[in-house]
Write a protein that binds this DNA or RNA. Structure first.
Lengths: 123, 123
DNA sequence: CGGTATCCCTACAGATACTG
DNA sequence: CAGTATCTGTAGGGATACCG
């Protein structure tokens, strides 16, 4: 058997977006093309290693594009591929559900730090 | 700080449905109430320990209900809670995307084993 | 049948240092 | 800036046995 067996189709989805950071990365990319360093700032808790690793896997699965600008200093950008954009509505739903969930759990004042508050987080 | 900090709201969603088996369990429950043993048969690769653990966490987060029938032999059923049903459209989308993805990757004949083929899988 | 309790191990991820 | 390469540690999860 060369093909992996799945007992339910959602497992195939999870194989693509189920990594520890993949949904988060993809969500950020729904807001547009991002440089590596931007992603790192957007995810203060991810390590360089994990970031690269997860990006590679997402690229292999065809949901993101890696754009290398040949220049010094290096500049690499990532964006949702056309195929990856087929995940956009799911990603948006996931974000929306999370927001609503936080409101439900913590009340109106919950602590999602959007892109704005990143300055003081750079430990 | 008593509240966990999230850098993006999808992290809150992942906290609820991001466990290794949670999406799979929830997908099965979108098809209706299920007994513990049914779930185990639907997920041949999950261990009793993980199944119970994931079910407990889903229950704590309020997305599933645990229904205990006081009888011998014991009978316990799980179902999506009302709150959990707010995840249904996401779960369905995840399943649908996975099906489409498998078709894309493997062609029309892919190996998702739906509920039907479970007989010969009970190793 | 459904659920605990143990033991145990490895795969994943963190830290650090280095390269082009 | 972006990305490797090592080393290391730990906690997530497997196997097994047992309980109500």
């Amino acid at each position: 058997m060369q093909k992996k067996k799945y007992n339910i189709s959602v497992e195939a989805t999870l194989e693509v977006i189920g990594g520890k950071w993949k949904c988060v990365i993809l969500c950020h990319l729904t807001h547009g093309k991002k440089r590596t360093s931007e992603l790192k700032r957007l995810m203060p808790n991810i390590t360089q290693k994990m970031l690269t690793q997860q990006l590679r896997e997402l690229e292999e699965d065809g949901v993101i594009n890696r754009i290398v600008h040949n220049q010094i200093p290096p500049k690499v950008e990532y964006e949702l591929s056309e195929y990856g954009r087929s995940l956009e509505s799911i990603l948006n739903s996931l974000c929306a559900w999370g927001e609503n969930h936080l409101t439900k759990v913590y009340g109106d004042k919950f602590s999602v730090l959007e892109d704005s508050v990143l300055n003081e987080q750079l430990k």
